[in-house]
Amino acid sequence: MKTDTDKRLVLLHPNDNIFVCCQTISAGESVVLEGESLVIHSDIHVGHKLARCDIALKEKIIKYGASIGSAKASIQRAEHVHLHNIKSDYMPSYQRSGVVDDNLVQTKAEEK
């Protein structure tokens, strides 16, 4: 059983392809993900997500066992998962600097 994972990371649902960070992890640190030691390339703050496995372009991101959006770039295991590599299937997210959206993935309305 691949249970050996850094205590700072939590898996919310067995089907999830991301971990959630409970305590800040700094760039350059090594963390153990399900038995494998990997180097983290950017700071991961509390509440942020880390890829549990490699995730292909357009693949769904699964958290709480449910889809929370799609990959807009291919994502490597242990990489930070956030606005730069995933997007909503419903509506754009926005930051103070403006709307983050690249229309890579169809909206829910278009699918229906």
Binding site: G47, H48, I86, K87, P92, Y94, Q95, V100
Partner: peptide, 29 residues
């Protein structure tokens, strides 16, 4: 969903993203 689509913004605020949330559906769940 229709209402927020017309308005151009969901309930997703900048602080949500700074705190690690990325999408509306993630915030919703």
């Amino acid at each position: 969903a229709h209402y927020y689509e017309v308005l151009g913004y969901g309930s997703f605020a900048p602080g949500n993203a700074e705190g690690g949330l990325t999408t509306q559906e993630e915030k919703s769940m």
